[in-house]
Computed example of a mutant assay.
Amino acid sequence: MADRIAVNSATRLSEAIHKLTAMYREKKYVVVSFREGKDRTLDQNALWFALYERIAQMTNIGDVEDARSYCKLHVGVRILLRDCADYRETWDRLFLHWSYEDKLALMGAHPVAGPEGLAVTRLFNRKQGIEYTDRIVSEFTGRGVFFGDLLGEAAA
């Protein structure tokens, strides 16, 4: 049984300790992992999909999945390579020698990476997710793509 508890108050900390104690008493073996920061939100995932749709509509990059793959490779992978030594080491060992086309294909449904493609955005913490959004918007605004309506900004 896998449970996740976000500890953001004294009450939630107490609940987590109680849950851990109960699991230990029942099973005598419990695996625990800790991570700082907030999770990405479903709203963030929905925003990314809307960005990919807009990019697909307003550029010659391809369809929504092509836009998603492009953004994951050109923006997301770069964030993880910068921020995560383990990811960088694994990327360099396994994928650095791959062609650009093969790396791009790895970002979508792929026999090696599964139906969602290589883990990139799902590994982000909240801060990395915000940076990912900002960098996509910056890059594609420079190419003439308008995102203001998606981001709640007034049209210029």
Rank of each mutant, 00 (worst) to 15 (best):
V64S: 07
I5S: 01
H18G: 09
F140L: 02
T90N: 13
V120K: 10
D3H: 00
D43M: 09
F146L: 12
L104G: 02
I130R: 15
S9G: 02
E65H: 05
R135S: 03
A56T: 09
I136T: 02
L20Q: 09
K38W: 06
K38Q: 15
D83K: 11
T11R: 15
D134Q: 12
S33T: 05
G144K: 04
I61S: 06
M23S: 13
G37A: 11
E139W: 05
V31G: 14
L96G: 05
R88V: 01
T21G: 14
V145P: 15
G142Y: 00
A154T: 09
K38M: 11
F34A: 15
R143K: 10
H97M: 05
A154E: 15
Y52K: 09
E153P: 15
D3R: 00
N125Y: 01
L106Q: 07
L73F: 04
S138V: 02
A119K: 11
Y100C: 06
E139F: 02
R35K: 15
P111E: 00
L81A: 05
G76K: 04
H97V: 00
Y132R: 05
E139R: 09
L73E: 04
L106N: 08
Y87D: 12
Y132D: 04
L150M: 06
L151R: 11
L150V: 05
T133N: 13
A6F: 01
L20T: 03
N8R: 02
E139N: 09
G152Q: 10
E36H: 13
L20N: 10
L94D: 12
V7A: 01
S9C: 03
G148C: 04
R40N: 08
Y24F: 15
G129H: 07
I79F: 15
Y100D: 10
Y100G: 04
I136Q: 09
A50Y: 11
S14I: 02
K127N: 10
G129I: 00
D92Y: 00
G148P: 07
Q57D: 14
N60F: 09
L73V: 01
C84E: 15
T121S: 10
L42W: 02
M107Y: 03
D83W: 12
D102S: 05
P115F: 00
L123H: 02
L81G: 03
F140P: 08
K103Y: 00
S99L: 02
D134P: 12
A16V: 00
D86I: 06
M1K: 01
Q128F: 00
V145G: 13
E139L: 11
L96F: 03
V75L: 07
M58T: 15
T90Y: 08
A46T: 07
K27I: 07
E101A: 08
F140Y: 10
G117I: 00
I17F: 05
K27V: 07
I55N: 07
L42P: 11
E53N: 13
S99R: 03
